[in-house]
Computed example of a mutant assay.
Amino acid sequence: MIRLAVRVRREDAEIALAELLALAPAGVEEVDLGNRVEYAIYGAPGELPDLPDLQAAAGDALVEVTTTHVEDDWAERWRDFHQPIEVGGRLHVRAPWHPEPCPGPIDIVIDPGQAFGTGAHHTTRLCLELLLALEPPPASGSGRAMMDVGCGSGVLGIAAAKLGYGPVAGVDHERESVAATLANAAVNGVAMDAARHDLLRDGPSPGAPVVLANLLRPLLLRVSADGFTGVQPDVVIASGLLAHEADEVAAAFGAAHGLREVDRRHGGEWAALLLRR
């Protein structure tokens, strides 16, 4: 197993990450190095993106590229890296090899090897916190539709479905993410649709009364500018933001869609917004 790491300047990290995820849609490991951020990709020789492609993706933000060999026990250590999380005492997110929680929290099973977004990253946890902060949807049988924009592994949509939202759907520009979302939804026994949609090339995102968007700043601004097709959202949860970017994104959705900020959560250097009409 090989670990290919790219170090970039912190001020350019979000742009570099967006480009790197296009080459490695299964996700990257993120390591905080102070004024630098390291993104690492794991794989067997011949399975990793070409070094010139990685260098081009990181662009002017690139500081260093390193390649190291990982010991044979990486598969077990990789499992240890993914630990279950509990959010708000109501949601429990775990990998398939972790035991079920004691009765109480809603159990969500996500395979971390399929797509980006297992619940452990601050951006996903903040989205789940804000989702729990919403008033519960109507009684079963008359749920409230929800759209997960940039669904990744499907964890946000699956959580929403288990909380009573419906119908629930997601879109992502990566076919692997669409497949992972559908597979994870089936494992969790919830109904969730997913389709491929490239926010940069395919136009406005599909809409719903509630929209969850765990995206980087450039894509959130693009969603705000392009708007939504079909139902216009009354609630948007926007995450994937560095703390200093939150004001700009909140202002963009306010000006374009009449959505006002009613809550903001922080985790590490990240922030998430709850916006309402």
Rank of each mutant, 00 (worst) to 15 (best):
R3Q: 14
V6Y: 04
R9P: 05
A13M: 03
I15D: 10
A16W: 02
L17C: 07
L21A: 09
L21P: 07
A24F: 13
A24G: 07
V28M: 15
E29Y: 09
E29M: 12
N35G: 14
R36K: 12
R36D: 14
Y39P: 10
A40M: 09
I41C: 09
Y42Q: 04
L48N: 12
D50V: 07
L51D: 09
L54I: 08
Q55V: 13
A56W: 07
A57I: 09
A61K: 13
E64W: 10
T66W: 10
T67C: 03
T68I: 06
W74S: 04
W74D: 06
A75E: 13
R77V: 11
W78D: 11
R79K: 15
R79E: 11
D80P: 00
D80T: 13
H82A: 03
H82Y: 15
P84R: 01
G88K: 00
G88Y: 00
G89E: 02
H92G: 01
P96G: 10
P96V: 11
W97S: 02
W97H: 02
W97K: 03
H98L: 01
H98Q: 11
P103D: 13
P103V: 06
P105C: 09
P105K: 11
V109A: 02
D111T: 05
D111C: 05
P112R: 03
Q114E: 12
Q114F: 00
A115R: 03
A115K: 04
A115S: 10
A115F: 02
G117M: 00
A120R: 14
A120N: 15
L126D: 00
E129V: 01
L132M: 02
L132E: 01
E135H: 01
P136E: 01
P136S: 02
P137M: 06
P137N: 05
A139M: 05
R144C: 14
A145N: 03
M146Y: 07
M147L: 14
M147T: 06
D148S: 06
V149R: 09
C151H: 11
G152E: 01
S153E: 00
L156R: 06
L156N: 06
G157M: 10
A159K: 02
L163M: 02
Y165D: 04
Y165I: 05
Y165A: 04
G166A: 14
G166E: 11
G170H: 11
V171A: 09
R175Q: 15
E176M: 13
S177I: 14
A179H: 14
L182T: 10
L182V: 14
L182P: 07
A185K: 06
V190M: 09
A194T: 10
R196Y: 01
H197M: 07
H197R: 09
R201Y: 11
G203A: 05
A208F: 12
P209H: 08
L212E: 06
A213V: 07
A213T: 08
L219D: 14
L221P: 06
V223C: 07
D226T: 14
D226F: 03
Q232K: 15
Q232Y: 08
V235T: 15
V236S: 11
V236W: 03
A238Y: 12
A238F: 12
L241N: 05
A243C: 12
H244V: 10
E245L: 07
A246R: 14
A246V: 13
E248L: 15
V249E: 04
A252Y: 05
H257G: 09
E261G: 03
E261N: 03
D263C: 09
D263K: 13
R265N: 05
W270P: 05
A271V: 08
A271L: 08
L273K: 11
L274R: 13
L275H: 10
L275R: 12
R276I: 04
